[in-house]
Design a protein around this nucleic acid. Structure first.
Lengths: 340, 340
DNA sequence: CTGAAAGCGCTTACAG
DNA sequence: CTGAAAGCGCTTACAG
């Protein structure tokens, strides 16, 4: 015995029409609520279609309508950390419109990207969303001259396109202002590599809020760097911070662990804020991290609705749209509720 | 100014045929390497198709061939921890065959699942792969009577279907045998909830290898539980383990941190092994975790090739296929290389 | 060696 | 109120 696949004799609109004793055109119009016919006929056709389990063939439909109700999501974020929430937002927004999403992970391989783009175009996607893992890098493939609309989300787009990104400056401000509100006065900033645009943007916002140079330490996106930074700071003679704003949650976790290992209490002695609100890290840190959430799902939702608009020919203004971040308060700052 | 989308005047085979001065049939045959014609004609058509940037419409093709070169991946693993590697394997295996993948995250919502399945069937997917986050649970939707082949990966399937899963018993054996080989004699097992099939299977394999009851502690899948378990063990009078085999990497991370906080050295005093080889956890633990990898990418690859076979009508034996796990050695056990 | 015709499953003017 | 016909873009017997 073995399993068999294949699509043996699917039911078509022919079968429905025959069973209902009407022509194919009438059946089509009945099912699509178009044309005019007796309510009785319409109902009968619809009932029979339901009974025989009729499912319209989207390929045939798409051939006529020039719409496949399909879009492609291109990403070079293998890890899925940014792509997954974006994808969830896109999917949620487009499901109501009957649109399905092809996910294409292209790493940083231009050839792989080209293959995926070609495959999607042949499959007549209504549009493409390009997403990545940083705001100042393009995907390794040129999407600027495609026959379908392209929207960028969390990756650098072209000047004539629509690009959605998080407002990192506003997110950083949110974090630092919160620390200030918590009564912290000596706030340090431990972050990722200065080569990242978002790192510079967040650092600038940090300096802006504290109104001075502050203490900015550039490093890399890992827990280890959090440990090293804390060691550096506490091994110096200089005045110690009572709060540390970190460039991402992994660094923040390293910082929190390092502080605890030095016998310092978080948040009592030092408050810590992370960035990304990556549940797996922020939630498992002891104490759980207060962190800036980039609202990637909302970003995905808007990107999805935007490709859809473009695919339907509705006009959309090009440019970069910055979406506000949100501060998610947990225990690492010493307060439970941002509104309190 | 605004961005415009839409598919204005795509090039069809008509255009190619006209430009090459041949009929549509000849153009089609030239491009598909079928039929017979002068080499000169064939070359000319192909060259012109390339020049005008002709891309065959997969919708039209699919209508004829009953193959959409599209499959659906259904998952209830929102977090993507298991789905992402599986997806990567599927995608990699099917790309060569021109197959694209619809990703559908259905949470545990049957209604959402039904909507996605209906959408995929209308779009004439050639098959569906169902994937989840545990081996002993079905997706919240019945896939047993679909007009297309369904393959299960890392989720419970039906008796007549093909199901791919990791061999958790073998994986656990690998881990415990490795600890034994490292000279460890008092190996404990700290794991997840006993209600999970894979937890029981791993625990049984653990007992098997150590040849006795051992010390099995069921809990939950979090770092905190690792801390609690270590506290429990070390607060008792009984003999302390010199190795702990953990049910997943998060527990293992908690265990490692808890041991270090007690002044115990890992791996010198206690060796620790995790399960899942989740890079973000295993790699950031100090020291990095030796962990069991379930080879989910390979699992995805095989699942992908299997739906493809079924879609093409090739016979496949039903049943559960267990794929071997692999031990990834890092520093938490005291050795660098399993072959040494 | 090349092309006219039928048809995949549907929708949409158009005619009756 | 209902249906015959044309057509979306392609492929595939079949005829010449």
């Amino acid at each position: 015995m073995n399993v068999t696949g294949g699509k043996r004799g699917r039911i078509t609109i022919h079968d429905v029409a025959a069973a209902a004793g009407v022509s194919i055109s009438t059946a089509s119009k009945a099912l699509n609520e178009t044309g005019r016919m007796s309510a009785e006929t319409r109902e009968r056709v619809k009932r029979i279609a339901g009974e025989v389990g009729f499912r319209p063939n989207a390929l045939a439909r798409g051939l006529l309508s020039k719409r496949s109700f399909t879009i492609g999501l291109l990403t070079n974020d293998t890890y899925g950390r940014f792509t997954l929430p974006v994808m969830a937002g896109i999917s949620e927004a487009l499901l109501d419109h009957g649109v399905s999403v092809f996910l294409c992970a292209i790493e940083d391989d231009p050839a792989l990207g080209q293959i995926h783009v070609d495959a999607m175009l042949e499959k007549q996607v209504d549009g493409i969303i390009a997403t990545g893992k940083r705001l100042d890098r393009q995907l390794p493939i040129d999407l600027s001259d495609l026959p379908v609309p392209v929207v960028y989300a969390f990756t650098e787009g072209t000047s004539t396109s629509v690009t959605f990104r998080s407002d990192d400056a506003q997110g950083a401000r949110l974090a630092v202002e919160w620390l200030v509100k918590m009564g912290r006065r000596r706030i340090a900033h431990v972050t990722g590599p200065e080569s990242f645009f978002s790192v510079r943007e967040r650092a600038d916002a940090y300096r802006d809020v504290i109104g001075g140079e502050g203490l900015v330490m550039f490093g890399h996106w890992a827990e280890l760097w959090g440990h090293e930074a804390v060691a550096d700071i506490w091994n110096k003679e200089s005045e110690r911070p009572d709060a540390i704003f970190c460039g991402n949650d992994q660094i923040a976790r390293g910082v929190v662990d390092a502080l605890r290992e030095r016998g310092l209490r978080v948040p009592d002695d030092v408050s810590v804020v992370g960035f990304d609100n990556w549940e797996i890290v922020a939630g498992q840190t002891r104490p759980p991290l207060t962190s800036v959430d980039m609202e990637l799902k909302e970003l995905g939702r808007q990107a999805g609705l935007t490709v859809l608009a473009l695919a339907e020919g509705r006009p959309v203004d090009p440019g970069v749209r910055k979406l506000p971040c949100r501060l998610v308060v947990r225990q690492s700052c010493g307060a439970q509720n941002p509104r309190r």
